[in-house]
Amino acid sequence: MISIDKYAYNSRLRRRDPMQKLVFAMMTLSVCIWAEKIIISIAVIFIMGGMTVLKGGTPFPFFLRLLLVPMIFLLVGVFTIAVNICENQEMLLWAIPFAGKWIGFSDASLVKSLKLFLRALGAVSCLYFLSLNTPMVDLLAAFRRLGMPKVFVELMELVYRFIFSLMETADTIYNAQNCRLGYSSLCSSYRSLAIMASMLFIKSYKQSKALYTALEARGYEGEINVLEEAYESHWGWYIMAVAVNALLVLFVIALKSITGGLS
């Protein structure tokens, strides 16, 4: 999570208007989910990966590693779809007998699971494009412009800011406990962890009060208002987003008319 944050701040696309990136990512994500085509899913992965790696400057190995994260969940999920139980061995490509029936993969179930797998990966790559090129602060600015309730945006902002502070504190407490053998046995580990949790709560509460005082000293009146950053923004990006997705949609329609909506 922290490295995603780091790459987002260093992305070459960072200064681009977050709204444009959001629109591009969401549009492509919708097309990818709607299309249900293997080729489209692969295309989306390549487009988003290419944009992130070539335009944004995220190292390719890191992007690959990120794609591996949902892979485990996906494989497990997809496996259950690919496996069929059948009474007739002929219907399955490969099967093993089990309690008088057959368990195995069929032609259709394999295609179906592959489709689902790639579709999910395509959707994830859209989100990775967004999060690897848009720091949270910019994304929140886009949400604000979209008219999301202020309370939510402010909460998200504060949560994001203090997650790092909380992790740092937790780390310090953990080290301090570890130095005094707080994690030497299972029993003491549980105890230390409980103490840490309660300490974190108390510290957070204290810090929130201190923060409120500090905000008050700068004229806080119940609303956090700040200046928005100036972003690079011209229509080219919207046109690009629409053009890419129109191409994908056209391609899908063409495919459907050729194959008669079969695959």
Binding site: P135, V137, E157, R161, Q207, A210, A214, G219, I224, L227
Partner: peptide, 27 residues
């Protein structure tokens, strides 16, 4: 203007620019 001892208690925004702008915008 009051500057507190622990800056972590004073800085509420993840963006340096936005945090500095907070007081001015409130004016």
């Amino acid at each position: 203007g009051m500057v507190f001892q622990d800056p972590d208690n004073q800085l509420f925004s993840a963006s340096v620019f936005q945090d500095i702008s907070f007081g001015v915008v409130n004016m």
